[in-house]
Design a protein around this nucleic acid. Structure first.
Lengths: 347, 347
DNA sequence: TGCTGTGATGTTAGCGCTAACATCGTTTTA
DNA sequence: TAAAACGATGTTAGCGCTAACATCACAGCA
């Protein structure tokens, strides 16, 4: 049994300045100091000034971990993307980051490398950080992950693709995008059109675009051959894709690539091979990366509003977070950001 | 005064499963459950199994916020970069992320947009999260930031450039890189060489490369004209840079760009303008982005080991963290990752 | 036999902060 | 003029977890 006369246990803690010390210096209680920093309007001007002065003088840095535990909410937003190698996700993250940081939220970034099991683990970790909301790329998750997210009571935003999701959704219709480009190619008079994708089992949105592409070609009574590369999209892979398309199939007149990285890689490779685009072979992409507009001929592609998608997603989440404070309930929502066919001279 | 017979206050908390509940189900105390999850080797096999079963059954997700507060350390690594738009930083981040995540650390990513005041604020926030270490791009910080970091007792890693830093340092010598390219251009016989940079007051590493470049040209008795663009590096900016270099200066025979984005932008623009590279004008870059090897002619550039730099930086930080556990003290260190001159046909 | 060491588990007391409720003087309202 | 409302601040009790110390059974040893 411990006795009240026992010496106190050895302290741990990080020997940092605490709010209590700030409060002492300012001659107020800890809670008033807390209020001065978090809800300044609830504190008398003179008092607040004294407290802020003490903060400055002591070099106080708030312990956000303690604050989050006490209030059971952090100002974290979990963001989960399948890859950092792809400029597309970087731009979405950028849009998210700008919008969230302006409101004092910090992004917790996770990278799944296109692995749903990894996604589940990231979600678990992130929930453990009491995130205020979670943004994830895509509508596909494994069962364990779905289970966690369904019973979680904070906003979940699924971006990149459009559809029935868990809660909030901002994206575009990839099948439609595939149809759009295929229709364009047909209208231009191409008849022997190959689709080239990379790791489409993982990048399933590319597979959705192919599905749209195929439906249009088949409706026109044409075949829709597919070449699938065993590595993720890159300029190199695009070069390989073009070579294979031309080698494995006869009289190909157009290649529809799953993304701009592949398409530009192919276009530059065509230059090296001395093929003229689009006379010898037409090339189309998807995403609308700036690079595609700098090559000659300019790439025909589908422009997706990536940064806008990020910004919009963040805004929707922020609005939802406000509503939660008001104890209002909101239904799930979907928002189609659409896309634009960007015509270059490559088709 | 409150009385011991008063009803208990209303609970807050997030109604999540807690470790205590897991422990109850498993018939042990909370600390044993904690040990089963964090230091499994200190718990009897049978007991541990019972606990893990309870974790599974209840769908327990550890509250990392509480854990961090109690132990006054999180498994966060703060990573601060000046931009996400630049592929260079993305690759460094990738290297860091892979290495840290493998050891169970989570990256907290901050973006300063090349603003040192913003860096200070991010550092403040991140210290508030009890990060285990901090990785930041560059050796320049403002006074407030330096003050915070100097009195902080955890590893600080400065990457990208080489030099006397706060603690750990992994990078390359940018002046040397500038000298290397200038020497190469001279050796090739170019005599009227322009340097084109973008926002070099912010991207001061580009300014360091220019300093190296200039020293070589001046030592050879040549002028070292500089054109500075008012926007950050991009393909567009590179095109503008080339136009201005050719318009504002007479008989330019080579342009040394501050980075590959600019250089490739210029190279593609030269194609559009019908200029032949390197006959009409030679073009050189810095970074060694894959794109530079796909254009025709291939770009002469300086290859910096970006992902390696990230991985190496992470490894050094991890080693230091291990040593701290052993209460060993380590001196500051510097590590030069070097660079390679990558010869294309553009010079 | 008693002593020490060891492995497994438990008890206690916080980590630093904030939600909930309490207090009190002043102002507004019926 | 009493009652209610309000604004500013304080008191108390945790948030969920883990460090430090405590306990206990049992093994090893002289």
């Amino acid at each position: 049994m411990s006795n009240r006369n026992d010496p106190p246990r050895q302290r741990r803690g990080s020997e940092q300045i605490t709010l209590k010390q700030v409060a002492e210096v300012a001659g107020v209680s800890a809670i008033t100091a807390s209020r001065a920093l978090n809800t300044p309007e609830r504190v008398n001007d003179a008092t607040r000034e004294r407290i802020l002065e003490a903060v400055e003088r002591l070099g106080y840095v708030p312990n956000l971990v303690a604050g989050s535990l006490a209030s059971s909410r952090s100002r974290f937003i979990a963001v989960i993307v399948p890859s950092l190698a792809n400029a597309v996700f970087i731009e979405v993250i950028h849009g998210l980051q700008e919008t969230f940081e302006a409101q004092g939220y910090q992004i917790l970034l996770g990278n799944t490398d296109y692995d749903l099991q990894r996604e589940y683990q990231l979600v678990r970790t992130f929930l453990g950080w009491s995130c205020s909301a979670l943004v994830t790329a895509g509508l596909r998750h494994n069962e364990a992950c779905l289970g966690l997210l369904r019973q979680w009571d904070k906003p979940v935003m699924e971006v990149m693709e459009l559809g029935e999701g868990l809660d909030l959704n901002v994206g575009l219709d990839h099948q439609d995008a595939g149809r759009c480009m295929a229709t364009h190619l047909l209208k231009r008079g191409y008849r022997s059109i190959v689709y080239v994708g990379a790791c489409m089992d993982r990048d399933y949105r590319a597979a959705m675009r192919f599905a749209g592409h195929r439906s249009v070609l088949e409706a026109a009574g044409l075949q829709a051959p597919l070449i699938e590369l065993q590595r993720l999209g890159s300029l190199d892979a695009g070069a390989e894709g073009l070579d294979r398309a031309l080698a494995e199939l006869s009289k190909v007149d157009a290649v529809h690539f799953a993304n701009d990285d592949l398409a530009v890689g192919a276009l530059l490779h065509a230059q090296r091979r001395g093929l003229s685009v689009p006379e010898d072979v037409a090339i189309a992409g998807f995403n609308g990366l700036p690079l595609g507009q700098h090559v000659t001929p300019r790439l025909t592609t589908i422009l997706s509003p990536r940064e806008t998608m990020g910004r919009l997603a963040a805004e929707q989440v922020l609005r939802r977070l406000d509503r939660i404070l008001d104890h209002a309930h909101e239904p799930p929502s979907q928002h189609n950001v659409g896309f634009t066919l960007s015509l270059g001279e490559s088709t």
